[in-house]
């Protein structure tokens, strides 16, 4: 049967391995011979036997290394090279993916911030129109009642009612709308802001002014009666004004909070890719760094021991201590003096 070069190579390798293992077994037996009955021998014989056994073991080791080095160089290293190259490529791609994810998260955060400001702007405009309307109505009523009170206080005669009514109409007609409060816009563009502004129904004061002007005649229709008992009327109007003031303030507070809640509830939530941020400890190859890590690890042992997983305590490394301290920092947000940290995104 003809064998391929690889097949014949494997057979040769098997032969070499069998021969080596025979040789290693013989070496082990030789060491056993040297050690057998060692307690009954004089010291110089014991010392000689140990020396000889060590020599046998050293020879065996060098033969074993010759074989395993060959396996390593010709088989294991070239075989793992494939994985290493694959891992490098994947790692590079993962780094690119992380950068893309970070960028997407940053963009999503910006979009969310714009969405938040858009919602806040909408709520502001709705609330401002509500406030302006409510305040305008309230002021028209207040100024009318105050004028009426003043007329009563100054005891204007009843024959001047038409003049008082005319004066009042002139005052109300000239009464200005409260000013629209500015919104501190940072992210929403001019175009979008205008679009939002135009989409919200504006307050038209004409109807309220008309109603208020109609009310003037109604209010002054009882002037003669009130003048007959002016103090009582003035006090009663004062109470009415106070109640109206409180109702105005409560309505405004409720409506403002309601509109803010509606705006928040309507606000779109931008899907944000997850970028996990983790604190790692910067471990320098210096004695000082090692000492800082060890001393803090010991000092914080009650808190960090939960993060330590070792099979053998004698093999606990500085790196593992640093990892445990990093987990403690991630969990608590505490700062450990002398320990330098870096934020790693995953």
């Amino acid at each position: 049967m003809n064998l391929t070069p690889i097949q014949s190579g494997w057979i040769k390798l098997a032969d070499i391995k069998t021969a080596l293992f025979d040789e290693l077994q013989r070496a082990e037996l030789a060491v056993q011979d040297y050690m057998n009955g060692i307690e009954g021998n004089p010291l110089d014989v014991v010392q000689h036997n140990i020396k000889s056994a060590k020599q046998v073991m050293a020879d065996a080791k060098s033969k074993r290394l010759e074989f395993t080095r060959m396996i390593d160089e010709k088989l294991i290293t070239p075989a793992t090279a494939f994985e290493k190259r694959m891992a490098e490529q994947i790692e590079q791609a993962a780094a690119i993916e992380l950068e893309m994810r970070k960028q997407a998260a940053e963009n999503a955060e910006k979009q969310q911030a714009i969405a938040n400001e858009t919602a806040a702007l909408k709520a502001h405009i709705v609330n401002e129109w509500f406030r302006i309307a409510a305040q305008y109505r309230h002021e028209l009523e207040r100024v009318t009642l105050e004028s009426y009170q003043n007329c009563l206080k100054e005891k204007h005669p009843t024959h001047s009612i038409p003049a008082m009514v005319q004066d009042m109409k002139r005052i109300l007609n000239a009464w200005n709308l409260p000013e629209f409060q500015k919104f501190e816009r940072k992210l929403v563009s001019d175009g979008l802001a205008k679009e939002i502004y135009d989409s919200i129904e504006k307050y038209n004061p004409a109807d309220d002014l008309e109603t208020a002007i109609k009310n003037i005649s109604i209010i002054w229709s009882t002037y003669a009666n009130d003048l007959a008992n002016a103090d009582v009327a003035i006090e009663s109007i004062e109470k009415h004004k106070q109640i109206a003031e409180m109702a105005f303030e409560m309505d405004l507070e409720f409506e403002t909070a309601t509109n803010a809640l509606i705006a928040e509830a309507e606000m779109p939530i931008v899907e944000t890719p997850k970028v996990k941020k983790e604190i790692k400890i910067k471990v320098d190859e210096t004695e000082q760094c090692a000492k800082t890590i060890v001393s803090n690890f010991v000092r914080l042992w009650p808190y960090v021991n939960q993060y330590v997983r070792v099979k053998s305590w004698t093999k606990l490394t500085i790196g593992q201590m640093a990892d445990a301290l990093a987990k403690h920092i991630n969990e608590t947000g505490n700062i450990i003096p002398g320990i330098e940290t870096i934020e790693v995104c995953k």
């Binding site: 507070e253 409720f254 809640l261």
Partner: peptide, 10 residues
């Protein structure tokens, strides 16, 4: 309660 804010009293 923080989320409901001022509304709760109205």
């Amino acid at each position: 309660l923080f989320q409901i804010g001022e509304l709760v009293k109205h």
